[in-house]
Design a protein around this nucleic acid. Structure first.
Lengths: 147, 147
DNA sequence: AGTCTTTTGGTACTTTAGTATGAAAGGAAT
DNA sequence: ATTCCTTTCATACTAAAGTACCAAAAGACT
């Protein structure tokens, strides 16, 4: 269902290849320098640490595609502007709506007329294709453009 | 700032100990069975895989304390009941409010009268100490009782 | 059996939200 | 320059939300 499925498959392949390459490199070096000079314990520890770090890194990359998704859509006013076509003022009004402000309170907060807020909110609703402020808030939150 | 800080420190210690123990075990086994029988390559691969898995596991555990936090506060109707004194019905109405439903739509959804929904919503607002549905939604979300 | 809460619903009313339409000033872009 | 968008505000209207007050049935608790 999520749209990062393909990049996940690609990532698995990449990580697999990286691991194989690392192993091959280590095997190549194995009988040449490290084993004789440092002893097998140190060598094993190095491998363990390397793959531990690699595991942490790979695990985070593979199980947190949410990062990219969050960064793409969250707390990004430009997203609101581009995806929904909301202007700066409209986005401001939407944010105050989500905080539970009434139109009058928004007007007082922004030093504007109540009618102005009504105009903005109507434009917000038509741009977001919703009918009520609660719908707008819900949609905006699910799109990640509101905290 | 987060309250899982102490458990994180404890986790790091535990993981460190676990890793050290595993290394010691491997070292102990090293010159007895595996190396002579299977060859160093297989042995190294096993270590690599083990620590890879351990790394993935540890990485996930350490960087996702959000799980516990979510479970504690979100989607927990009992929290709403206890902390705010909301009844089941009231919580249902609140949930539909947060989805952007109008009072009439909530009434249709729950097979109730519009007046009933108004009664419920008024009770919700007084119990939550807010004046509007948008405030109630915002407060409920910040309390974690709504998705 | 009586009390309390919940759930349901009603009437009447006030307030807020939202729509439709128009308009004017300023900034940005071609 | 003029077109486009934004921002501002207005009027007049409809729809929805919210308040106040009341009331009745059902369940739980004691």
């Amino acid at each position: 269902m999520p749209f990062y499925f393909y990049s996940m498959k690609r990532s698995i392949l990449l990580y697999g290849l990286a691991m194989a390459l690392l192993l091959a490199m280590l095997k190549f070096l194995q009988f040449k320098f490290l084993v004789r000079d440092l002893g097998i314990e140190v060598y094993l520890s190095i491998i363990a640490v390397i793959f531990m770090v690699l595991g942490v890194w790979a695990g985070l990359k593979l199980t947190k595609p949410s990062k990219k998704q969050e960064e793409l859509v969250s707390l990004n006013p430009e997203k609101a502007l581009e995806e929904l076509g909301l202007s700066q003022r409209e986005f401001e009004v939407l944010q105050l709506m989500a905080k539970g402000f009434s139109n009058q309170e928004i007007a007082d907060e922004l030093f504007l007329s109540l009618n102005t807020i009504k105009s903005h909110s109507s434009n917000i609703f038509s741009k977001m294709d919703v009918k009520r402020r609660t719908q707008a808030i819900d949609k905006a939150k699910s799109l990640g453009i509101l905290g």
